[in-house]
Simulated scan of single mutants.
Amino acid sequence: MRRKIYIGTLFLVVFILIGGLYYPLPFYVSKPGMAKELEPIITVEDGYKEEGNFMLTTVRMGRANIYSYLEAKIRKYEEIYPLDLILSNKETEDEYNAQQLQMMAGSKLNAIEVAYRKAGIPVHYKFKGIYVIQVVPGMPAEGKLQAGDRIFKVDGHTFSSSEKFIKYVSKKQAGDPITLTYVGNKKTKTITVSLEQFKENPKKVGIGISLVDDKSIIVDPTVKVKTDEIGGPSAGLMFSLEIYNQLTSEDLTKGYQIAGTGTIDEKGAVGPIGGIEQKIVAADKAGAEIFFAPNENGSKTSNYRDALKTARDIKSKMKIVPVDTFEEAVKYLERLPEKDK
């Protein structure tokens, strides 16, 4: 009898332990990710080689289970976020992931444009449609479209920008049908939906989607940026530096290991990101010697100040460099002495 009780208890304990791995808590956990060399990721046709390396830095973010939650409670530089801080109202995880991938795509386009224009090379765009990044519950698109679908025709018409797509739809009235041709799950599909008024703005009609442009950039020489499943816009600055370095004969790395983070817009302005502390830890572990951090125009709560504090805390020897623009980062590197070999 005791043996049966023992075996039963053992099975229950094992079941609870295994269940703890798969039962999600209403939290997300972030922790230091990796610092990844960009030269294998970015390839400019006939681009110049470099002695050192530019590196992007990442944060590992995932839904918490009981073990990762408890681990984050006791480990420094691991953060716990309530679910509603990561996912906005009624937003699904698929929609969140689609947004992150689209922000990465936009970051790549901005980085390419900034680098090529700095190198004096013309840049052109080709509009390919719009990506769905969120579907509004209760609106006509619900159940018919999902995050990641790419719409490229409306009523048989193609458009040269998302603004023209929106303008076309806005001229119609509630109840009017529109036919959408789109790609979802690698298949081309066509659906017809009727427009409805938005509850928060009855003067506007639509099908209930948040969207972002799907466009490709046309440059010569060509450039390829392979980011796989890395999401978010925070690698923009480092992308632009790596691309520019391959376009020009002077090697800006000067033989150093250079990491960093920061969004980049089409004019080259560097913006703040989340998880700067974890990225400092990741860069330090990877052996980075220089780290570019968003300066936020000297704000007392800037990424740069948080990065500096973390670097001191972990006793890192990295040089933390504040930047507000791509141009500032380039000028810093141009003044940098060659690393002793």
Rank of each mutant, 00 (worst) to 15 (best):
residue 272 P to N: 01
residue 271 G to H: 01
residue 179 T to I: 13
residue 267 K to T: 11
residue 96 Y to M: 12
residue 101 L to N: 06
residue 167 K to H: 12
residue 157 H to R: 14
residue 116 Y to T: 07
residue 72 A to M: 07
residue 307 A to Y: 04
residue 152 F to Y: 08
residue 12 L to Q: 06
residue 328 E to T: 07
residue 255 G to A: 09
residue 102 Q to T: 09
residue 10 L to W: 14
residue 87 L to Q: 08
residue 28 Y to W: 12
residue 35 A to Q: 10
residue 111 A to M: 09
residue 267 K to S: 15
residue 250 E to Q: 13
residue 89 N to V: 00
residue 334 E to A: 06
residue 23 Y to N: 13
residue 173 Q to H: 13
residue 309 K to A: 14
residue 183 V to I: 15
residue 57 T to I: 07
residue 234 S to N: 02
residue 33 G to V: 14
residue 301 T to R: 12
residue 212 V to A: 13
residue 131 Y to K: 02
residue 83 L to G: 08
residue 324 D to A: 03
residue 251 D to P: 08
residue 228 D to V: 06
residue 191 I to A: 14
residue 257 Q to A: 08
residue 154 V to A: 08
residue 102 Q to C: 13
residue 167 K to M: 11
residue 328 E to P: 03
residue 314 I to E: 06
residue 143 G to T: 10
residue 206 G to H: 07
residue 322 P to H: 00
residue 156 G to M: 09
residue 295 N to H: 03
residue 259 A to V: 05
residue 167 K to S: 06
residue 274 G to H: 08
residue 328 E to D: 08
residue 215 K to A: 05
residue 308 L to H: 06
residue 249 S to G: 00
residue 200 E to R: 13
residue 166 I to W: 01
residue 339 K to Q: 06
residue 184 G to D: 00
residue 232 G to Q: 01
residue 255 G to F: 02
residue 290 I to K: 10
residue 275 G to E: 03
residue 130 I to P: 00
residue 280 I to N: 02
residue 179 T to K: 15
residue 69 Y to A: 15
residue 112 I to S: 08
residue 180 L to D: 01
residue 49 K to P: 14
residue 94 D to A: 09
residue 283 A to H: 04
residue 178 I to R: 06
residue 69 Y to E: 11
residue 313 D to Q: 10
residue 318 M to S: 01
residue 161 S to I: 04
residue 315 K to R: 12
residue 135 V to L: 15
residue 328 E to F: 03
residue 104 M to G: 07
residue 137 P to I: 10
residue 133 I to G: 02
residue 161 S to A: 02
residue 197 Q to M: 09
residue 242 E to D: 10
residue 156 G to E: 10
residue 296 E to W: 05
residue 79 E to G: 00
residue 85 L to E: 15
residue 75 R to T: 12
residue 187 K to W: 05
residue 319 K to H: 06
residue 150 R to E: 00
residue 130 I to L: 11
residue 133 I to K: 04
residue 152 F to G: 07
residue 210 S to R: 12
residue 137 P to A: 05
residue 58 T to I: 13
residue 24 P to A: 14
residue 112 I to E: 04
residue 331 K to T: 05
residue 221 P to S: 09
residue 277 E to D: 13
residue 191 I to L: 09
residue 95 E to V: 05
residue 53 N to H: 12
residue 320 I to V: 11
residue 132 V to P: 04
residue 330 V to C: 04
residue 37 E to W: 09
residue 289 E to P: 08
residue 271 G to E: 03
residue 55 M to K: 03
residue 149 D to I: 04
residue 88 S to V: 15
residue 60 R to W: 15
residue 58 T to M: 15
residue 240 S to E: 07
residue 135 V to G: 08
residue 165 F to N: 02
residue 154 V to F: 10
residue 33 G to L: 14
residue 142 E to H: 10
residue 335 R to N: 09
residue 8 G to W: 13
residue 269 A to S: 02
residue 219 V to W: 05
residue 7 I to E: 05
